[in-house]
Design a protein around this nucleic acid. Structure first.
Ligand SMILES: [Mn+2]
Ligand SMILES: [Mn+2]
Length: 568
DNA sequence: ACCGATCACACAGGT
DNA sequence: CGAAGACTGG
DNA sequence: ACCTGTGTGATCCCAGTCTTC
């Protein structure tokens, strides 16, 4: 791939762009110190700016002054002095032993430890310390060294700095992107040409966060997410419980609501692993989002609270979340049995997934190969009269993305908040269709004739390589599109797209592995879908759902059970 | 909703 | 030693 | 031998450098 060259000082430009955009859009919601960051940064010389951005975007959090070296910073000491004067950088701030240790390589640490006498008498000899892995070595040092003494040694021999206003920048980042996963590298990735984003107008008068409390909440959620990566926190049930409990509840913000509930589920699940079931239950009860209720039901059953578990499951039978509903139907019978009551389900021995239409299942014996089962099977099923492709979700999702491209990127209110999105914020929700119904219905009508093909081709040609959650450019190509045009009936596609539209989040996965096109001239259905199952594998819930759908609408789909050929 | 989601796969414990 | 991992800059 | 649940790895810019084991 061709890679562009970035102009000198690109990182400063990007950083300024970000700060300025947020300072304009959120001026009334920013704190005193956040505004100070913007103002002071603007006052800096080029070299000071450059250094500050470098430090801020690196992991650190501490940096040895003697290691600071950049092409574009001729006088790092001056840059540092300037930053220190503006309080944008702190010199030798107090730090945890672990952070201090990260200033050095393992070899340097060993030398430091044995040369200086700042340890207590129990420190092991050099030879043994060398055997330790670095994290363990640091833990040992933490145990046997007085932090202040260590710190004194390091600050005199190896002075270090840390960028200040990191929390303030976090606020800018959150406000700019609306999430905590994107950062300044987005600018670089797009400028280099590794990724192209669609261009859409951004309405600066619509803000993602409407009050300060929402910003604070998002910051708190990001912080907890970070903390969960830390083993010393995620292994300690009490700490986990306390952190989750003191998390502020979201206020009037669907996305924050989702993140809050996600966190609750994640922490509660971790508490389950630590056998802290009471605390897990408490957290699960603070949210409705899948799989909270399911986990509660399981915990209750595990502790023989069958009535309570059954009560929960009975509610879940009406859940709009397909997997939750399926869980309830599966989980209730054993519960009823344990309670000694007769089955309440009207269908008796209820088999919710055993549809009216049976799933076609076939066996195939293959020699074992280096390639994946799916690929081997695709090759085995290809012939002069048949072309078989391993596409999984990508084919129908890509067709969907291409057909609806312009509608997906229609700038409806609040859907686009930064320049680096692969789709509108509500793309995967049930509201995507509802809020664009007229446009979408019109587009679906194109499937009454071959008109839809021109729309797909048009977007395929003009939007080539542009990021879209639904389009996988690595898989889709003109040949594949042509196959689809000639071999898949329009009615089938219409049904599939309507299903995806019901809830793009639930129905954009679970498609069969392979599609096979038949070069026969007879009927208009000249394709079939094949889910490959190697020995030991089985249909997943979302795959079952699609198979039910295919059966209902008489679309050709089958499960192909692979057996390995004996080779002697 | 691309550092969580999505696959396949491997294993444990129950029946 | 050589491969894998962490981190960084573009 | 079956079922279900749970946990794991790979993948999602890329290349160069230093560090670790
Ligand atoms: Mn698959
Ligand atoms: Mn498969």
């Amino acid at each position: 791939m061709k890679v562009n060259v970035l102009p000198a000082g690109y990182h400063i430009e990007n950083f300024s762009t970000l700060l300025t955009a947020v300072a304009r859009q959120y001026s009334d919601l920013l704190s005193e110190s956040e505004i100070t960051l913007h103002r002071r940064f603007a006052e800096c010389s080029y070299e000071a700016k450059s250094l500050y951005v470098r430090l801020l975007t690196r992991k650190g959090p501490l940096f040895r002054i003697d290691k600071i070296q950049y092409q574009d910073i001729k006088t790092p000491r001056d840059a540092l002095a300037e930053l220190r004067l503006l309080n944008l950088v702190r010199e030798n701030p107090p730090a945890e032993t672990e952070e201090l240790c990260h200033l050095f390589t393992k070899a340097e640490l060993l030398r430091l430890v044995t040369v200086t006498g700042a340890s207590d008498s129990k420190l092991q000899p050099h030879k043994q310390l060398q055997q330790l892995r670095k994290p363990d070595l640091i833990a040992t040092i933490d145990e046997h060294f007085c932090r202040d003494q260590l710190s004194a040694i390091i600050t005199s021999a190896y002075p270090y700095v840390a960028p200040a206003y990191t929390e303030e920048f976090e606020t800018y980042r959150i406000c700019f992107f609306g999430n905590d996963r994107q950062d300044l590298t987005e600018f670089v990735i797009t400028d280099l040409g590794h990724l192209k984003y669609e261009s859409y107008p951004l309405n600066k008068s619509v803000r993602y966060f409407t009050d300060r409390k929402q910003i604070e909440n998002q910051l708190a959620y990001s912080r907890l997410r970070q903390q969960l990566l830390d083993k010393s926190i995620s292994e300690d049930a009490n700490t986990l419980f306390i952190l989750a409990n003191q998390l502020p509840e979201p206020n009037q913000h669907p996305a924050l609501e989702r993140r809050y509930q996600n966190l609750m589920n994640t922490v509660a699940r971790q508490l389950e692993r630590l056998d802290a079931y009471e605390q897990a239950l408490t957290l699960y009860r603070r949210c409705q989002q899948h799989p909270s209720q399911e986990r509660q039901a399981r915990i209750l059953k595990k502790h023989a609270e069958f009535e309570a578990s059954l009560a929960l499951c009975t509610e879940l039978k009406n859940s709009t979340h397909p997997e939750e509903k399926e869980f309830a139907l599966r989980f209730i019978p054993p519960l009823e049995k344990a309670l000694g009551i007769a089955s309440t389900s009207a269908t008796g021995h209820s088999q919710p997934l055993a549809a009216n239409h049976p799933i076609i299942q076939t066996d195939l014996t293959l020699p074992k190969s280096e390639l994946s089962v799916e690929l081997s099977t695709a090759i085995a099923l290809s012939s002069p009269t048949q072309d078989c492709y391993y596409v999984e979700n990508t084919l129908f999702c890509s067709l969907f993305g291409l057909l609806f491209w312009d509608i997906i990127f229609t700038p409806i209110r609040g859907a686009f908040i930064n320049a680096f999105q692969r789709g509108p914020l509500d793309l995967f929700s049930e509201h995507f269709y509802r809020d664009r119904k007229i446009q979408i219905d019109q587009r679906l009508d194109q499937l009454q004739s071959d008109q839809w093909q021109s729309t797909v081709i048009h977007h395929f040609e003009t939007r080539q390589g542009i990021a879209n959650y639904f389009v996988n450019w690595a898989v889709i190509n003109a040949t594949l599109l042509e196959h689809c045009f000639t071999s898949i009936p329009r009615t089938h596609l219409q049904k599939i797209f309507q299903q995806i539209l019901q809830h793009p989040g639930f129905f954009s996965s679970g498609f069969p592995d392979l599609i096979r096109f038949h070069r026969t001239s007879s009927p208009d259905t000249r394709y079939d879908l094949i889910e490959v199952k190697a020995p030991g594998d089985k249909l997943q819930a979302n795959q079952k759902r699609w198979f039910q759908f295919f059966a209902q609408h008489q679309m050709p789909a089958q499960v192909l059970w692979i057996k390995w050929q004996d080779h002697d």
